[in-house]
């Protein structure tokens, strides 16, 4: 999932300082699951913004709604009557959700309430960790299902480096060395031969720095 975290409330309050009526839109997708932008968080943000405004002696009218996913136009369209009524929309979606709302409602200010931080998963309740670097050219079949692109600080493909100390990365004693994890996993699978394979330089053109990426599946296009 896409993992996001809330922006400081006062920062969001600053974005809407000239508005009198706003729509706070939660997302039922990834940001709900990472407990940053679901129904509860949308209600919390709306109440917080009203409180801050009340302390200034001014009123802020808020409407709150949560849609199934902000990254799909049909769900985005479903709130058009509510969007029409407000000065600005505050989105608790990831960066994708904010942009889909902004593109769909061309004359509306759509403002982000979250910082989108990484693609990851829930390692335990309340704790999320990065797992995928979205490099566009997956090599997990060679590394025992552990990604050196994102989990190694240097993204090296032929590791570990000299900074691997007792299974930890030199950048932080709490960060496991990805290549140590790969060694342990391959060892457990009796496939240490894979770690001896040399990986030539990766094709980074498929990565984000290669420009805007898109994907098309012909049979699904209407």
């Amino acid at each position: 999932m896409i993992v996001a975290e809330p922006k400081p409330i006062k920062e969001v309050a600053g974005y809407i300082k000239d508005c009198t009526k706003i729509l706070v839109v939660g997302c039922g997708g990834c940001t709900s699951v990472c407990m940053a932008g679901g129904e509860t968080e949308a209600e919390m943000l709306a109440a917080s913004l009203r409180i801050l405004r009340k302390m200034e002696g001014r009123e802020l009218v808020t409407a709150v709604t949560t849609i199934t996913r902000q990254c799909e136009p049909e769900f985005v369209e479903s709130i058009s009557s509510k969007v029409k009524e407000v000065d600005a929309v505050v989105s608790l979606g990831c960066g994708v959700g904010v942009q889909f709302l902004a593109e769909h409602y061309r004359d509306k200010w759509v403002l982000p309430a979250l910082n989108t931080v990484f693609a990851g998963g829930t390692v335990q309740a309340g704790i999320w960790e990065e797992r995928c670097g979205l490099c566009g050219d997956c090599i997990l079949h060679l590394t025992g299902g552990i990604c050196p692109v994102i989990r190694c600080a240097k993204s090296i493909l032929n590791g570990p480096c000299g900074g691997s100390q007792n299974g930890k990365c030199e950048i932080n004693p709490d960060t496991p060395c990805a290549w140590h994890l790969i060694y342990e996993k391959l060892s457990a699978m009796n496939r240490l031969d894979l770690i001896l394979q040399f990986h030539p330089a990766k094709d980074w053109s498929k990565e984000r720095s290669g420009g805007l990426r898109n994907r098309k599946r012909e049979d699904a296009v209407l």
Binding site: T40, M44, A47, S48, I51, K54
Partner: peptide
Amino acid sequence: IDPVVILKTFE
């Protein structure tokens, strides 16, 4: 107890 309810109580 819901955090939203606590916050609204202050509000």
